[in-house]
Nucleic acid binder design. Structure first.
Length: 491
RNA sequence: CGGGGCGUAGCGUAGCCCGGUAUCGCGCCACAUUUGGGAUGUGGAGGCCGCAGGUUCGAAUCCUGCCGCCCCGACCA
């Protein structure tokens, strides 16, 4: 009715925006490229954050917080790093405003110019490594395992809600190790944490892999990533974990004494996921009726809608429903009882479907007489009648089934959209007509990668981990290749 | 930064060519009837028509300048 959603087939971008805006996740803000994350969207982020934060702590990390501002000079210490971020940095040049002498509000006070300009962090490697220099003297100080939850700013030319905003929320882990092997193990461990989170909580299947040199994080030796596939056939980088080698240690002179009392530079990693995950989550599961959220991170797992005639009947219903709510909550299920009298049941049904609540329970007088409730699942739209007896257990099973079903569906789509291709014609055809990942041979050069990108807009998403070795010929140049890599058009 | 679109009530819009203080729907407020898939009726409130100039007796409408947002591309998580 009032909240029509554009069909995916009609306009995929519009569909996505409709879900975010009408699903109550976020709004555009007064600042270009920046969004307001609304309570429901933020609850989703909190749910993700809680799971990840627990996993980080289980793997030995501690949270800390570093400044939003970074002295300009820090950023230029690592050559590749500044190269990668220079074009999208917001810069603070003054620290004071004053009344406009010509009237009309306030102006920047030219007297208040900063001696050294400050960069609003696009990422925190530099400020953190400048700090680690003071924290690390000996191998006994290692490993140093720190994470921070923060906002960062990257002045993007073109932004999209959640997927690419000028300011976004994320976590960034920054660790220091005594050996390269240990740092690499950390990098890969965190990649596994991300993959586990994506698959088992967000129900988003991912490909784990390594980036090609040109797609690497600025300043990294190796960038590992998890890549997900959206319903429109485009890939989304959902998380990255970098082995930084000794690049930042050297740039910031972070040395430690090893057991032999010799000085050496420490080995570093960094890894992060952002609110972009929310965008990916939306695009993997949702449909033309609205959001579809996996139970394990849905802010509301079960909504209960009462159906009644008159206040008397409702009072009776309230009493019984509160019992149900209590039972479900004690089983660890998050429940909302929507007894708001301003909206009628049909309106609520549509509303919670749009918001992607996994399970809806409708209860009326008739049901109570029969000791049952009507249960509807969001993923399949299936409705069933369940007895009050043993309801919590049945709902828990249903939530598990929904979680599994979402994953299975997404995985089936993903798997059927990894296409092996051996000729250039096929390569272009699959990208244009089918989409998804294309598994093809590549001669390993940046030039070829670049040419392929220019001609097809597809990039190498990753070289999958444990990639089978196989003789073949580069899709573009015909030069010899030892393995296939995954190409796709990406967000 | 290029191409396209758009700024009128909280939201979505009509009116603009052809100048006369603004239409409709949703939402909001009140009351009543309603409540198993987005209720109905009656009454009501709400507008610097993006901003600034100009033309005119008179501008949402014509002219000039500016600002903002969205979409598509180049760049990026």
């Amino acid at each position: 009715m009032s909240k029509e959603i554009t069909a995916r087939s009609e306009d995929y971008s519009k569909w996505y925006n409709d879900l975010v805006l009408k699903g109550g996740l976020a709004d555009y803000s007064a600042v270009r490229g920046c969004m307001v994350i609304k309570p429901y969207g933020f609850a989703l982020w909190e749910a993700m954050r809680d799971v990840l934060d627990r996993k980080f702590k289980e793997t030995g990390h501690q949270n800390a917080y570093f400044p939003l501002f970074i002295p300009k000079s820090f950023l230029s210490k690592e050559a590749d790093h500044i190269e990668g971020f220079a074009k999208e940095c917001a810069v603070v040049t003054h620290y004071r405003l004053k009344n406009d002498p010509n009237g009309g509000g306030v102006v920047v006070d030219p007297e208040a110019k900063l001696e050294e300009e400050l960069i609003v962090r696009p990422t925190s490697e530099t400020i953190i490594w400048n700090t680690y220099k003071d924290w690390i003297q000996s191998y006994r100080d290692l490993p140093l395992l720190i994470n921070q939850w923060a906002n960062v700013v990257r002045w993007e030319m073109r932004t999209r809600l959640f997927l690419r905003t000028a300011e976004f929320l994320w976590q960034e882990g920054h660790t220091a190790h005594a050996t390269a092997d240990e740092a690499i193990a950390e990098t890969r461990q965190m990649l596994e944490v991300y993959a586990d989170f994506a698959e088992n909580y967000m129900a988003v299947p991912v490909v784990k892999g390594v980036k090609s040199p040109s797609e690497r994080f600025a300043g990294a030796v190796d960038t590992y990533c998890i890549e997900a596939l959206m319903q429109d056939g485009k890939a989304l980088q959902a998380g990255t974990s970098h082995f930084l080698g000794q690049n930042f240690a050297k740039a910031f002179d972070v040395q430690f004494s090893n057991k032999e009392n010799k000085l050496d530079y420490v080995w570093a990693t960094s890894w992060g996921v952002s609110t972009r995950l929310i965008g990916g989550l939306i695009m993997v599961h949702s449909d033309d009726q609205g959001l579809v959220l996996p139970p394990k991170i849905a802010p509301i797992q079960v909504v209960i809608v009462p159906i009644y005639k008159g206040a008397d009947q409702k009072a009776g219903l309230d009493e019984k429903v509160m019992e149900i709510v209590k039972t479900l909550r004690s089983a660890g299920i998050s429940v909302k009882y929507d007894d708001n009298d301003n909206n009628r049941p049909g309106w609520k049904f549509a509303e919670y479907e749009m918001k992607g609540v996994p399970v809806r329970i409708a209860v009326g007088a008739r049901d109570l007489e029969n000791q049952v409730v009507e249960v509807a699942r969001r993923d399949t739209k299936e409705k069933m009648t369940l007895p009050l007896e043993g309801l919590a257990g049945n709902i828990q099973n249903l939530l598990d089934q929904i979680q599994q079903n979402l994953y299975d569906k997404a995985k089936q789509y993903r798997d059927s959209h990894i296409t092996r291709v051996d000729t250039w014609e096929e390569f272009e055809k699959v990208l244009d007509e089918k989409g998804g990942f294309v598994s093809a041979h590549w001669d390993g050069t940046a030039e070829t990668e670049e040419q392929i990108k220019d001609r097809t807009k597809a990039t190498i998403r990753c070289i999958p981990l444990n990639n089978p070795q196989e003789e073949g010929k580069c899709i573009l140049t015909g030069k010899p290749s030892k393995e296939r890599v995954l190409f796709a058009r990406a967000y």
